[in-house]
Amino acid sequence: MTKAGLAVLLIIFLGTAVMAAFISYNLIATSSPPFRAYPSPFSKYVGQPLGEVQVNQTALASLVVSQGKVNGTTNNGVILYIPFNWTLNLTVYNKESFNLTVIMGDASYTVPTNSSMLISIPHLSEGNYTLLISGEDLTYQANVSVIKDLLSPYVYIGE
């Protein structure tokens, strides 16, 4: 019997025990009860869209207007895809030296220079909308597409 061998065996057994305890601790410490029980994601929902959701989901998007460009793009560069019946919370940041006018549908907003504004449009119905941003020599059109059965909101930024 050698002491070195004993040390090796002790490290193997104690190490395994310590690690089992460490893993258990982590599994417990990072476990939190689910909001409610959901069906397991094994195969049932693979590849299917989110489905009908009645609650008020919110899509966040931000448009930064700076140096004659919106999010670094020229006219028609941004398309927002929003699922049907969702709320769009759009923040427009005006980094220009002039005030901006934002028109979506019938509503019109004014975003003063060097400030931002949160534009909230609840319960979007299906269809294509244009979002017009203008001021001084800037005219920019972004597109909002509200689609039924869309999995999640999605921002397309073209170059």
């Binding site: 409610r36 959901y38 069906p39 008020n56 919110t58 899509a59 999640s152």
Partner: peptide
Amino acid sequence: PRPLPNGTLV
């Protein structure tokens, strides 16, 4: 999760 919990921020 489906449906998303009420008040989910997406």
